[in-house]
Computed example of a mutant assay.
Amino acid sequence: MVKFLLLALAFVLAHAQAELEGKWVTTAIAADNIDTIEEEGPMRIYVRELTCSEACSKMGVTFYVNANGQCSETKVIGYRQEDGKYRTQFEGDNRFEPVYATPENIVFTNKNVDRTGRTTNLIFVVGKGQPLTPEQYEKLEEFSKEQGIPTENIQEVMPTGKQSE
């Protein structure tokens, strides 16, 4: 029985890894502190790729940020914690997790505590380059409310010329 459970766990982790890995682009962002995701805000990230290693205990996130008129590529590695969330350092301490995944979209929650101690709750939606459908946007609004993020703080992110990189 134990071998069966371990095999099932390995299958689930492999499936999750396959579903998360690959080229993705930021489709929408929401935050309770809206200034963090405005143009050139510190948490307005433009995701381009997700990688998993070591049975997805490490998740790599490659993204672009635009600060002071400069667009730069950044990569962080999140390390899975005992509670299943990933932890990394970027503009402070971040604890993030994928909460919903389909072949078209992945929804992440993230809690950022910046260097001043300010906490921001965020939602990132990454996809394959298509805008959210009206139904998906409605689900995002509902989820945003559940997370304590005002729906007016949802921002759809337009694709940039860097998509193919």
Score class of each variant (00 low, 15 high):
residue 33 N to L: 13
residue 1 M to D: 09
residue 20 L to Q: 10
residue 90 F to K: 01
residue 78 G to M: 03
residue 115 R to G: 14
residue 101 A to P: 01
residue 145 K to R: 15
residue 7 L to P: 00
residue 99 V to A: 02
residue 68 N to R: 12
residue 144 S to V: 06
residue 44 R to S: 08
residue 149 I to D: 03
residue 46 Y to D: 15
residue 63 F to C: 00
residue 95 R to M: 10
residue 140 L to K: 06
residue 68 N to M: 13
residue 18 A to N: 15
residue 101 A to F: 05
residue 28 A to R: 07
residue 17 Q to H: 12
residue 66 N to E: 14
residue 117 G to R: 01
residue 144 S to G: 09
residue 65 V to R: 13
residue 18 A to Y: 05
residue 138 E to R: 10
residue 1 M to C: 10
residue 93 D to C: 03
residue 97 E to F: 08
residue 38 E to H: 04
residue 153 N to Q: 06
residue 88 T to C: 09
residue 31 A to D: 02
residue 123 I to P: 04
residue 80 R to G: 10
residue 117 G to V: 04
residue 131 P to M: 04
residue 66 N to G: 02
residue 89 Q to C: 00
residue 105 N to W: 07
residue 115 R to I: 13
residue 142 E to H: 11
residue 34 I to W: 07
residue 48 R to E: 05
residue 32 D to W: 05
residue 51 T to S: 15
residue 136 Q to T: 00
residue 89 Q to N: 08
residue 39 E to H: 09
residue 70 Q to E: 15
residue 127 G to S: 06
residue 70 Q to H: 12
residue 47 V to P: 05
residue 25 V to Q: 00
residue 65 V to Q: 13
residue 80 R to F: 11
residue 72 S to T: 15
residue 102 T to C: 10
residue 76 V to C: 03
residue 83 D to I: 05
residue 69 G to T: 03
residue 107 V to I: 11
residue 57 S to A: 08
residue 114 D to W: 06
residue 16 A to L: 13
residue 67 A to N: 04
residue 55 A to W: 12
residue 156 E to C: 05
residue 148 G to K: 06
residue 78 G to D: 01
residue 46 Y to L: 15
residue 143 F to H: 08
residue 37 I to Q: 12
residue 139 K to D: 12
residue 66 N to S: 12
residue 18 A to V: 06
residue 61 V to I: 15
residue 104 E to H: 10
